[in-house]
C-alpha cells in the first residue's frame, strides 16, 4: 500500500541497518572461519600454516570440550527450568490482590538491572564465601560445617546466580500476560461450572504459552553466552567443572593464545547456537504470528 516513490525511500532508509548487520555478521565470522583452518598462535606470529580440520579435531577431542558442552546445556536448561517454573508461581502469587503490589513488583524486578559482574561478585563474596559469607554464618549458627559452594558445586552455584538474575524477567513477563487474561472469559467459564483448577488448566495455561515461549527464546539467547559470571567467580574451575563453551573459547584463544583452536571452537559454538536458534525460531515464529 504505497507508491513507488515511498518504496524507494523505504529501501534507502532500510539499507544502513541491513548493511551494517550484514557486515557485522559476515566479516568477523568469515575471519573466524578462515582462522579456524590455520595453525595460528599469537605467541608465534608469522608462523601461520594451513592445517585443514586439525583445529576442529583437537578442539573436539580435548576432554574439556565435552564437559564444556554439557556444562553449557546444563546451565541453560537449569536456569530455564528454575526461572520458568519459579516465574509462573511467582506471577500467580503477585497477580492476587494484596497490599503494596507496586513496591513488591519493584523489589522483584530489581536483580534484572544488576550488572552480571556485580551480581556474581556479591554472591561469590557476601553469600557463598566459606568464611565470611552469609551462608557460612547461617551454617555456623546452626552448628554445621560451612559449605564451599564455588569449589564443591561450582556449576550449581553459577546456575543459582544466573537464575537469580533472570527470575525477575520471567516473572514480569508472565505477570503481564496474566494481567491481560480476559476477565469475561474467566467469568464465563465460572458460569459454565469450571472450578479453579480447570480454569487454570484450560484457560490460563494456554494463554501463557506464548509468553513462556518468549521467555525461553530471549533467555536462551543470553544464557548460551554466559561469561562474566564465570569469569569473576570460578574462572571456569575447579578444573573445567564450570567451563562453558563461551568460556572455553575465551580461554583457548586469549589465555592460551591459540587463535586457530579458539576460532574452531567459535565456529562450533555458532553452529550449535544455530541449531538451537532454528529450533527456537520455528517455535516463536509460530507463536508470534498469532
Amino acid at each position: 500500500m504505497a507508491t513507488a516513490h515511498s518504496r524507494t525511500a523505504a529501501r534507502l532508509m532500510l539499507s544502513p541497518a541491513v548493511i551494517l548487520l550484514l557486515l557485522w555478521m559476515i566479516v568477523p565470522l568469515g575471519m573466524t572461519l578462515y582462522f579456524s583452518f590455520l595453525r595460528y598462535n599469537l605467541l608465534m606470529p608469522g608462523m601461520e600454516t594451513f592445517v585443514g580440520f586439525e583445529n576442529y579435531y583437537y578442539f573436539i577431542n580435548q576432554p574439556a570440550f565435552w564437559s564444556a558442552l554439557s556444562n553449557t546445556l546444563i546451565l541453560v536448561l537449569g536456569v530455564l527450568c528454575i526461572t520458568v517454573v519459579g516465574g509462573i508461581l511467582l506471577a500467580l502469587l503477585l497477580d492476587q490482590p494484596f497490599w503494596g503490589q507496586g513496591i513488591v513488583r519493584v523489589l522483584v524486578i530489581a536483580p534484572f538491572f544488576v550488572m552480571p559482574t556485580v551480581s556474581a561478585l556479591v554472591w561469590k563474596n557476601m553469600f557463598m564465601n566459606p568464611v565470611n559469607g552469609i551462608f557460612a554464618h547461617i551454617a555456623k549458627s546452626l552448628g554445621l560445617q560451612p559449605f564451599d559452594f564455588l569449589s564443591h558445586a561450582p556449576l550449581a552455584s553459577i546456575i543459582l546466580i544466573v537464575a537469580w538474575q533472570w527470575l525477575p524477567f520471567a516473572t514480569l513477563i508472565l505477570l503481564t500476560a496474566l494481567q491481560s487474561l480476559d476477565r469475561e472469559q474467566q467469568e464465563a467459564a465460572e458460569m459454565d461450572g469450571a472450578g479453579w483448577m480447570q480454569r487454570f488448566v484450560y484457560l490460563t495455561v494456554p494463554h501463557l504459552t506464548r509468553s513462556i515461549t518468549v521467555v525461553i527464546l530471549i533467555q536462551t539467547i543470553f544464557l548460551l553466552s554466559v561469561f562474566a559470571e564465570i569469569l569473576v567467580t570460578t574462572n571456569g574451575g575447579p578444573g573445567t567443572a564450570s567451563t562453558n563453551l563461551t568460556y572455553l573459547v575465551y580461554a583457548q584463544s586469549l589465555l592460551n593464545y591459540d587463535v586457530g583452536g579458539g576460532s574452531a571452537g567459535g565456529i562450533i559454538a555458532v553452529i550449535l547456537a544455530n541449531i538451537v536458534a532454528i529450533f527456537l525460531m520455528r517455535m516463536i515464529g509460530k507463536n508470534l504470528e498469532a
Binding site: L21, M31, F35, V249, G266, V270
Partner: peptide, 13 residues
C-alpha cells in the same frame, strides 16, 4: 537471528 550469533564465535577476529 544476528542477535543469536554467540559473541564468542567472533571474539578472535
Amino acid at each position: 537471528s544476528t542477535k543469536m550469533m554467540p559473541a564468542v564465535g567472533v571474539l578472535v577476529p
